[in-house]
Each structure stands twice: as structure tokens, then as C-alpha cells.
Simulated scan of single mutants.
Amino acid sequence: MTATDIVFGSGQYADVNGINLYYETHGTGHPLVLLHGGLASGEMFAPILPTLADHHQVILVDLQGHGRTADIDRPLDVTLMAEDIAALIDHLGLEKPDLVGYSLGGGVALQVALKYPHKVRRLVTASAHIRRDAIHAEILAQQGQVGAAAAEFMKDTPMYELYQRVAPRPEDFPRLLDKIGAAMAKDYDYTEEVRGLQVPTLVVAADADMAPPRHYVEVFALLDGGLRDGGWGGENRPKGGHALAILPGLTHYDIADSPLFAATTLAFLDKQD
């Protein structure tokens, strides 16, 4: 499959969990639910979607209030959006799909795997920190400025252009900023939950990500990773089949476009146990 084979906007809506959720299906093979980052949509994966769709049936979802999915009267919360994805998996009759999420989508995918491990085969969570205080201080300061008042200043950004082009209610952009800002201001720590993760998981980050590499190493350690030599035959690798990838030369803002991210994701998802 090539980029010219991908037609965005040709998807469907699923009425699940109280939200009319937009999704598209590309490619064939074992199903892979692909979740975008904040202020984006499934279209952000355009550079790597052909590669993923050559190996998997990719279900590309627009999360609550993003892309072609209209907002509803509830907060933007990863646990609530995880319920949407779990309901979509049931709605589509998917048999243990893989979940791949980036940033906000990585947090949503993680929550699905934590609460519904029986619905998920493998999980890839990219550039998604599990504690609010893990990210760099200057990023926390920037996040504190996100809100409706910033809408005017964002009119020249790709996020605004995309929203105006595809959103069912383009005038809701300030509302989305308010909700994103409120979500980012809320403290959270999923350390204890991650310790009990039952789904084989690949933790991915850029080497210059929103949180430093040590945070993702800490997450890997919660999953029994990096605590001992893996052994000649990999016999001492993490017991749950988990893995870690810190991708070189990338940042939080270009990792999801990277062929290296696509290749690393596929290598983990298609690994023969």
C-alpha cells in the first residue's frame, strides 16, 4: 500500500458508550487500533499508515472532540476515552486487536489494556508518560497556558487547520483547548496500575521526548524490564513479554511520523513467541 491508496474521510461512525465515534479501516491482517495524540486526529499518521496497513487491518480512530468525532458533555479523560475504545472493539467484533497509541492516544490505549486485558493482544504506548510530574518543567509551564484564550494564537498552526477542515463543529476549537488544558492540569500517577499490566507491552519514546528517557526506563522496570541480564536466549527478559525502545534522533513532535517508529512497532507486534 502507498500513500496514494489512503483516502482519509472515508470512514464510518459507531454509536458507542454515548459518543458517535469516527473510525476508518485500512489494510488487511490482524486488527490494529491506532490512536492519535492531543489536538490531532487519525490523519496525523499519514506518513506511516501505508507501512502499518501493509501488515495489519488498521482501525484509525478520532478520539472524543478530535478530528471527525464531535465532543460530548464530559471531560477529556483517558479513562473515559478508554471505555469508548473498548466499546468500539466490541461493536466491531474485533478478536483481541493490537493497540498502538501516541501521546494522548498512548494513555488511552494503556487504560484499555489495564482495564480490559482480555480484549487486547499487544500494546504499543508511545511518548506517553504515566506520571504528570515526569515531564520537563518547561513543558508543564506551557501546558498551563492551554485554554480557549489561546485559540486566536493557534490559527496558523496545523492543529487548527486540521480541526477547521474536518471537525463536525469547527467552532468548538476553543472548547477543545479548554478541555485539553483542564486534562493536562490534573495530577495523575498510574505507577501501581502499570505494575499489574497483563498485556505484552512495548514502551516507546524519542530520545528527546516530553519526558526524559529515564522515565520510560522506569516504566519498563515496573514491567520487570531491565532488572537483570536477559540471557543468551532471552530467557531472562521481562516475564510478560514487555519491551522498551528509545528511538534516536527524534522528539515528541516527530516520532509518530517516523519510519523507525513504524518498523519498531511492527517488529514488536509481529514477533513470533
Rank of each mutant, 00 (worst) to 15 (best):
T2M: 15
A3V: 07
T4I: 12
V7S: 12
G9E: 02
G11P: 04
Q12H: 13
D15L: 15
N20Y: 03
L21W: 05
Y23G: 03
Y23A: 10
E24C: 01
H26L: 08
G27E: 12
G27M: 09
H30G: 05
G38K: 03
G38F: 03
G38S: 11
A40F: 10
A40I: 09
G42Q: 10
M44K: 04
F45D: 06
L49W: 08
T51M: 01
A53D: 14
D54W: 14
V61R: 06
D62H: 07
L63C: 12
Q64M: 09
G65L: 05
D71G: 15
R74W: 08
P75F: 10
T79P: 13
L80W: 13
M81Q: 15
A82T: 05
D84C: 12
A87N: 01
A87P: 00
H91C: 09
L99Q: 09
V100A: 12
Y102M: 12
L104N: 08
L104S: 05
L104F: 08
L104Q: 09
G105W: 07
G106P: 09
V108D: 14
Q111Y: 13
V112F: 15
A113W: 00
K115L: 14
P117D: 12
P117V: 14
K119Y: 12
R122C: 00
L123V: 06
V124N: 12
V124T: 13
V124P: 07
T125W: 02
T125Y: 02
S127N: 15
S127V: 15
I130G: 05
A134D: 10
I135P: 09
I135D: 10
H136E: 14
E138C: 10
L140S: 13
A141F: 11
G144N: 06
Q145H: 04
G147V: 05
A148G: 04
A149R: 04
A149D: 04
A149I: 06
A150C: 01
A151F: 09
A151P: 02
E152L: 11
M154V: 03
M159E: 15
Y160A: 02
R165F: 00
V166F: 07
V166S: 10
P168H: 11
D172L: 07
F173L: 08
D178F: 01
G181Y: 04
A182V: 07
A185M: 05
K186S: 00
Y190P: 04
E193W: 00
E193L: 02
R195V: 03
Q198L: 11
V199Q: 02
P200Y: 02
T201D: 11
T201E: 14
V203C: 06
V203H: 10
D207N: 02
D207W: 02
A208I: 13
D209C: 02
P213E: 11
R214P: 10
Y216M: 11
L222R: 08
L222T: 04
L223I: 00
D224C: 04
D224S: 05
D224M: 01
G225A: 10
G225F: 10
G226V: 03
L227W: 04
R228P: 14
D229H: 15
G230V: 04
G234N: 09
R237N: 06
K239C: 00
G240W: 00
G240V: 01
G240H: 00
G241L: 01
H242G: 03
H242N: 08
A243T: 04
L247A: 06
Y253C: 13
S258Y: 13
P259F: 14
P259I: 15
L260G: 11
A263N: 14
T265V: 14
L266S: 01
F268I: 08
D270P: 06
Q272F: 13
D273A: 13
